[in-house]
Simulated assay, not measured.
Amino acid sequence: MVSAVFHSPRDIAPPVAASAERNATHSIAESADASGAKAVKHPKTAARPQRDFSALWLRVLPPVLGLALLVLVWELVSLGTKASIPSPKDTFLQAVVLFSDPFYSNGPNDQGVGWNVLSSLKRVAMGFGLAAIVGIPVGFMIGRFSFLSNMFNPLISLMRPVSPLAWLPIGLLVFKGADPAAIWTIFICSIWPMIINTAVGVQRVPQDYMNVARVLNLSEWKIVTKILFPSVLPYMLTGVRLAVGTAWLVIVAAEMLTGGVGIGFWVWDEWNNLNVKNIIIAIFVIGIVGLMLEYALIKLATAFTFEEVKS
């Protein structure tokens, strides 16, 4: 059975007409796309990117507010003590006069603040350097060999809590001089953080590293230089940073007791002269120098620290 479907002539569009209609539609669409692209490509007014200052503002505002609070409290204390404590303005004017010539010298007991700071830094460098020469190798040996660890741990636990100034009379008795005694005090207070942090770093080296060294039959020198030292370096630098902070704290107190040229002696000498302005200036100088030392060592430690330790 055959069925046929019949269409009216109106329902049948000529092929040429249909093709022309499609081409016209495509042309209109392409022209619309082209005009839209041109409009997007060449806008009349380009929007400028806005800068976000919120992060910078959050970094700058808190320190500024903290310093403003310090100055406010300082001013209130000065008013409450009837100017027995100099005001921030008077101290600032005195600092301008003092730092206009920080390296003057009118004899051994009258020198500028610059010479006093340099003398203190020299003592700290000598005592700290001797502590590093002795403390870091001792820390390596204590961390490397359990026998030495068991032998020295009780001694370190006994000596470490002793106040550094308690060692000053021993230094005066042994070395018969103020400068060697101050350097000895710096040495004895700086050596414990270096020993402890270095030993802890050696003990935390993964055992797999040591097993590989044993399989390869590496010498002790190669174990120290190729395996232990790179792994222990972040811990060692942390001990160095703690030691420098402690040394800078101790040298001020040691110089107050021993005399001579130094920032601690300068503070004590200004107290004897009842010059409170210079004492406050010295406090800020001590804090700024300590902050600079801390910042420099943090940058050094960051440069030699692995990413997982930084985080």
Rank of each mutant, 00 (worst) to 15 (best):
W115I: 01
I142S: 01
L61V: 13
I136D: 00
V124D: 08
Y104G: 03
G80T: 09
G143R: 07
G66P: 07
L67Y: 15
G114A: 00
L76N: 07
G139R: 00
F53V: 10
S87E: 05
T81W: 14
V77M: 11
G129K: 06
V113M: 07
K41C: 04
R48I: 07
P86T: 01
Q111P: 02
V134L: 12
S87R: 08
G114V: 03
P43F: 02
L69K: 04
A46Y: 12
V40K: 09
I136P: 01
N106R: 12
A55C: 05
S105V: 08
K41D: 13
V60K: 02
F128Y: 15
V40Q: 13
F103S: 08
A34K: 10
S87K: 11
R123C: 01
A68R: 09
A131G: 14
L76R: 15
A83P: 05
L58H: 15
S119D: 09
S54L: 09
K89S: 11
S100L: 01
P49F: 07
L118R: 01
V134P: 12
L118K: 04
A55Y: 14
R59V: 00
W115T: 08
A39H: 15
V113R: 01
L67D: 05
G36W: 08
V97M: 06
G129C: 00
P88T: 03
D101Y: 08
V117M: 04
V138P: 00
L69C: 13
K89R: 10
S35F: 14
K89C: 02
A46L: 11
L98M: 12
L70F: 14
Q50G: 08
P63K: 04
L79I: 04
R48A: 15
A125D: 06
A47T: 15
L79M: 14
D101W: 07
W74T: 00
S78P: 13
A83G: 10
S105W: 13
Q50H: 13
N106M: 08
G107L: 05
R123I: 00
V124W: 09
Y104A: 01
F128M: 04
L130S: 10
L58I: 02
N109P: 00
G114C: 03
G143N: 06
K38Q: 15
G127E: 08
